[in-house]
């Protein structure tokens, strides 16, 4: 491509669009579906189909541990996995603000390509629009992931029982704090990296082993772990009891949260999911997660209870209790 920056013409449907598609998009994603260069894709899916869509508007678009492209793939892939699906195909739509350097778009496309390969999904269709300068924020991405339901999965809120254990696969709040430190220009002893990753294989593995003993899967993205747990408490009319001591948190993430006055329970994650599982298999499941990713810090952080229905109660490290309420609006840093 001759142009160094994306122009309105790249979204007009004319020659510039053709150039952008041919030289950047179609050459990056080669597969029998996208090679048709059609408006959509005809896919060989059988049985129960799982679908999920998500839009990505993160700023900055490049951050420690990832970028908006990787996030856009992992986000939809993980959402399908959380429904008990095995993601196979991905649609990819861009809304680009005029003036985005073509180099940035290339980098993002590379990340998307790598992330898609890593999670075993194929980009089969897409769309590109360009908006005037000031009408967007560099680049927005929407992805939709489609896949088949895992035969052993029966994931629904209504299957949650008192006594079920709540397990997280890794330590919390890394993504949100990576973004925050980038935005605030904060440097910590060791930099905090986003935890963005695809979770479809680990989910598929635990579904193979534990099947219907897994009652709910949920990734703790926006609203964090507190958001997911509040939803569980309200929707099931059961209580959620958490032990602060058991919640895995990297030291520098805890320090960053302290410094910025944020509660890690509400901070966004991109590679953390919660499993609500029957108590009989909780420890085996924990071991399975450890084997899957030896560098992660999975933990049983709490349980479902009939005490305090519809409420999430946390026992603090020093043994006091408090209610964890859902996040209202954005989490606001405190003055002092």
């Amino acid at each position: 491509m001759d142009k160094k920056k994306i122009e309105l013409g790249h979204g007009s449907g004319g020659l510039l669009t053709r150039e952008l598609l041919d030289e950047l998009i179609f050459s990056t994603f080669r597969n029998p579906y996208i090679d048709q260069k059609h408006d959509g894709a005809v896919l060989p899916l059988t049985g129960e189909v799982v679908i999920s869509t998500d839009s990505f508007v993160v700023s900055p678009i490049f951050f420690k541990g990832g970028d908006i492209g990787e996030l856009a793939v992992n986000g939809s892939v993980n959402d399908v996995a959380m429904c008990g699906g095995i993601p196979k195909y991905l649609s990819l739509a861009f809304i680009i603000e005029e003036g985005l350097p073509v180099e940035d778009l290339k980098k993002i496309l590379q990340s998307i390509s790598i992330a898609a390969k890593r999670s075993g999904v194929e980009v089969v269709t897409g769309d590109t629009k360009v908006v005037e300068k000031g009408k967007g924020d560099r680049i927005f991405i929407n992805t939709t992931a489609v896949g088949m339901k895992h035969p052993g999965a029966d994931i629904t809120m209504s299957r949650i029982l008192p006594g079920d254990q709540i397990i997280v696969n890794n330590s919390l709040a890394q993504h949100g704090m990576a973004i925050m430190s980038e935005r605030e220009g904060l440097a910590f002893e060791s930099a905090i990296s986003s935890d963005t990753t695809n979770l479809n294989y680990v989910v598929s593995d635990i579904l193979d082993r534990f099947g219907t003993q897994i009652h709910l899967l949920r990734d703790a993205t926006r609203g964090g772990v507190a958001g997911v747990l509040s939803e569980i408490a309200v929707d099931t009319s059961l209580g959620v009891f958490l032990k602060e001591e058991a919640i895995p948190l990297q030291k520098q993430v805890a320090a960053a949260c302290d410094l910025l006055g944020l509660d890690p329970l509400y901070v966004a994650n991109e590679g953390v999911f919660l499993v609500v599982a029957h108590q009989d298999i909780a420890h085996d499941l924990l071991e399975a997660l450890k084997v899957q990713d030896p560098e992660a810090s999975p933990a049983i952080i709490g349980e479902i209870t009939t005490a305090h229905p519809e409420m999430v109660v946390l026992e603090s490290k020093i043994g006091g209790r408090r209610v964890v309420t859902p996040l209202i609006g954005e989490q606001l840093p405190r003055i002092c």
Binding site: D263, E315, S316, K317, I318, G319, G320, R322, R334
Partner: peptide, 16 residues
């Protein structure tokens, strides 16, 4: 101080 209020609440101290 509001920071103390926050500390009391966050750590569940009022409960103890």
């Amino acid at each position: 101080c509001g920071g103390q209020t926050h500390g009391l609440v966050k750590n569940g101290l009022l409960d103890l």
